[in-house]
Amino acid sequence: MEPILSVRNLSTWFYMEEGVVKAVNDVNFDLHENEVVGIVGETGSGKSVTVRSIMRLIHKPGKIVSGKIIYRGRGKEEDILSLPDDEMTKIRGKEISMVFQDPLTSLNPLYTIGDQLMETIIQHQNVDRKTAWEIGVEMLKKVQIPEAEKRMMAYPFEFSGGMRQRAVIAIALSCNPKVLIADEPTTALDVTIQAQILDLMRDLQKEFKTGMLFITHDLGVIASMADRIIVMYGGRQMEVASAEDIFYNPLHPYTHMLLRAIPRLDKKQDKLEAIPGQPPRMIEVPDVCPFAPRCPRRLDKCSKELPELAEMEPGHYVRCFNPVVESEKSEAITNE
């Protein structure tokens, strides 16, 4: 089956006074219907800019410098990046919607939850206010907000953080989009509330068969959500594979080290293996492997050339000249 969304050679740069920040470089991936693709990475790795580029939410000094974003949800292939603005408005919120990290800033404090829900519904579905109200109530029930009719008239400040995020999810799903982008949707929430929201998102994603792009820096969260995972570092994809391969068979040194740097709840560990050095500064970086300065497996050519994102195993893509090989992994396990 054709993927619903294909991102091809996407690069988004920011033209700052200090120089060009190459936030996203040459990103490629596909998202299918009813699939969850996770993007993990640290601050500045380009994960948010990637999805904002898909929604065309990049403003000056940022610019999408190259690439195509093919959307196939409307019965034909369309390049989102070359659509006129009014067409894009029809796609945003209807075909592709987005849930942001902080629900307090993504809701307008001056309008009731009902108004904000109905605005999206009326904009995209060609219904009167009464029907929109009914759809709105139905959506609030779907995201398990109690006393939905009453809550339609409440303002965002009257909701707790978890409830706000539920309302934002209700708005995002109100027009039954084919693609849902969730940018760190639970980072601002407490862990018991995070568990509720993740549970809800999993259920709704299955029910609506939405293709979901899920962005997080938390490897635990991504393990519970994603079918496939993109690991980003320094504005580039370092490894793309199924969730199982990323966690049990990581080939890129960065992924490998990242997994050993995080503490685990279910195990007693003696030490964490820290990754030395700092995340890269993004200004005027040369086209070499961004992880090279911190990489223990660095070869001479790593800081001279950029490795290709190559398919090393079926469906398992790695950008590295010197990937972690099988024998070293088993050695690492016996050491533990």
Binding site: A195, I222, S224
Partner: peptide
Amino acid sequence: SASPIPDP
């Protein structure tokens, strides 16, 4: 039980 474990 709400704390995620990095293991799919």
